[in-house]
Design a protein around this nucleic acid. Sequence first.
DNA 1: CTGAAAGCGCTAACAA
DNA 2: TTGTTAGCGCTTTCAG
Lengths: 358, 358
Amino acid sequence: MVRVTITQVAAHAGVSVASASRALNGQIASAETIAKVRHAAAVLGYVADATAQSLQRGRTNQLAYAVADIGNPVYVEMMSAIERVVSASGYRLLLSSTGTTSSSVDVVRDLGRGYVDGMILSPLRITDELLTALAQSPTPVVVLGRLPDGARLDTVRADSFTAMRLIVDHLVTEGRRDIAFVNGPTDTTPGAFRRDGFAAAVTSHPYLSTRTVDAQDFTIAAGYTAVRQVLAGDQRPDAVVAANDLIAIGAIRAAEDLGLTIPRDIAVTGIDNTELAGVVRPGLTSVDLGAEERGRVAAELLLARIAEPSRAAHTVTVAPSLVVRGSSLVAGHGPKRVAPALEHGDEATAFGTEEAAG
Amino acid sequence: MVRVTITQVAAHAGVSVASASRALNGQIASAETIAKVRHAAAVLGYVADATAQSLQRGRTNQLAYAVADIGNPVYVEMMSAIERVVSASGYRLLLSSTGTTSSSVDVVRDLGRGYVDGMILSPLRITDELLTALAQSPTPVVVLGRLPDGARLDTVRADSFTAMRLIVDHLVTEGRRDIAFVNGPTDTTPGAFRRDGFAAAVTSHPYLSTRTVDAQDFTIAAGYTAVRQVLAGDQRPDAVVAANDLIAIGAIRAAEDLGLTIPRDIAVTGIDNTELAGVVRPGLTSVDLGAEERGRVAAELLLARIAEPSRAAHTVTVAPSLVVRGSSLVAGHGPKRVAPALEHGDEATAFGTEEAAG
DNA sequence: CTGAAAGCGCTAACAA
DNA sequence: TTGTTAGCGCTTTCAG
């Protein structure tokens, strides 16, 4: 299995390399040349070298998805959606983990090496340093998450404010009056926005009693610990609003271990509507932030920017939807979904908002 | 942000491109040259172009992981492990989905394009066509799964026979005597080996009553459907052995919907010991096939082969371990793990077997 | 329509 | 130690 080059194909076909290249790429060439070259290529088992093509054409046909914590089901869901769009467009997908060795900033800086034509970045924290790196990046980057106003970048974001409002309103409707909000770290983008979203949602219900605890991170274990702490207090809340499904599952465990029954003694809600939400018992009421859709849209924005580098920066906000399951109900209604209508995995949903700027 | 090349760095530093290259790559060069070149590179913001380096050096520093169904937690777990090893060795990881557009065979054939230095392949079905493509591949491939004897390829595999034996023995110990085996499609590699493994495991217990159903695929929905069918029969089994955790969760749902209590009326077991197993109630007894370890070992084998292409083909078998949770117990013991000792996520486990051949 | 030649950006001989 | 030169394999002017 020795590497066969276009030079050998050309020689075998009795034409120049230029003709061979043209014939192979569907450029202008006589029928006879095409036939000879095709034949030679087939006989020799020729396949064009991707690296050489990349160098010559100035593009790699590769895109990257950079995320801190692959392993979190939400990011996997996004990645699947991205992969689908990307491979359908003839690109290969590269996975860059930003968690361990390198930070988001490093990853963005490394883009200068030109190993991909574009990147989708899901940063945990958005720092000034990162924004600078993004602004200077020679390769287009689409950011999943909320950027400061004025950042001229393609962005796809969830709507944490609406999400929190949906949850709080629902709990109020179900008669809950004392809500503990278990957030993740507030120095992360999701943590910060869920904190603010919760605060905003609560203002509509001044009679509510609320408190907030920050879990160490967005995991089951951290959720468990945080909720044990909350439930150890004097006054037990009648609802726990968790910042994501993993924390929520930790909350369910903690409540169970204290002999509480969900939802009778305490309601629990999550965010992300991952597969886990449908698997635990009682089913976990959760807000679907449209991970699949966000991934798909991000990939589409990236492809559009590559096709037209000078186009205006777009920001797409994906509308959340509440999926009600047993963990938050008083009596045993079945699961239902609250506005806007959106089935999990549904492909045909409209964008919440799209604004072009810059 | 215009692309700056080594030529410009050399000019700025007042040396030749060769000297610039040597200085940048830690080759032999005078201290003064190094200083000048480093300075020039810093001033101009130079970063070497990855594609040009690849073309020249003849390697891409990229490895690929090809899998049909990313989204299945097991493959995500493997991918994380692979990513860790790969990025620690300075390689980038590419994700090739073989499910939708292209088959495993296409993916392997495409390796001829030279866009990666090696690949880890997790094929759902191993066909002669695939074996041929693998044998002819110019780039090394490590296969996750069981290959026919005589295939001179690096392989990492789980031990389905031991896995099934652990489960069946456990259920027998717990007093179960009528076992329904709910497999996935038997024309897939896992399906075929789990079928054979179950058959073998059962022979040690001739007094057992058993039956087998094949679910449509390895999903919760398919498991649910298959188990509804099983439980509709005249004689209800006292245990369901599912071919993976997803099918097992479908089984739990089906049993619950028929008003059965797990494990009192019926025991349920899974395979893979995914995160889901610890999250459902009752906890799902499951065999850990060492996904994390298999991924890690596969990556290590690949790196070893790239370093030494002519070395003998290795086959590593990872030992399974049974993780007992509530879904299979008669009385309420806590969770426990049966031989060999292996904690979920444990990094420091020995290989079950390693044989070198070829 | 075809071939010769240049060159993508880089590294590695080879001489000097 | 350094610079000159030759490619890596391919695509693309530019003459013919």
